[in-house]
Amino acid sequence: MKSRKVPLRKCVVTNEMKPKKDLIRIVRTPEGEVVIDFTGKKSGRGAYVSNSKECFEEAKKKDVFSRHLNIKVSSEIYDQLISDRTKGDLS
């Protein structure tokens, strides 16, 4: 039997190619708001980041999402990623 192709995406912090399910997607919606997309299916411009606290902190330090999404991303998005990760909400 043929195995399914695993979709790969690049982490905007580490530039590593990883399976899409191992990354978290941050989306700039058509309305211009920035949200964390846990489903991976929201419409809009997306940026992927590895699911680790170190990557979240590095992204915040370098303001990576603002550059990739072409919109100013508030520090609340970065803080939400970090706090959700420490609480264990992000799998």
Rank of each mutant, 00 (worst) to 15 (best):
I77L: 15
K62F: 11
I77C: 09
R25F: 03
V13L: 08
R4S: 13
T39C: 14
K18A: 10
S74V: 04
L81N: 00
T86C: 14
K10E: 12
G88A: 10
S50W: 06
K10P: 01
G44I: 02
K87H: 08
R9F: 11
E57K: 14
N15K: 14
G32W: 08
P7M: 12
S50M: 11
I71N: 01
A59N: 03
I82H: 04
R67T: 05
P7H: 08
S50E: 15
V35W: 04
S52N: 09
R45Y: 11
F38E: 11
C55A: 15
D84Q: 11
S43N: 09
F56K: 01
E58H: 06
G40C: 10
T29N: 07
R9C: 10
K53H: 08
S52L: 13
K42N: 04
A47H: 01
I77A: 07
S75L: 15
A47M: 07
G46I: 01
H68Y: 15
T86D: 11
N51D: 08
D37Q: 04
D84R: 12
L8Q: 08
L23Y: 03
V13G: 00
G46M: 05
I24E: 00
I24F: 03
E31A: 13
G44M: 10
Y48S: 00
G44L: 09
V13P: 00
V35Y: 04
V49G: 00
C11A: 07
Q80H: 11
V13T: 01
K42E: 09
S3I: 06
V64L: 15
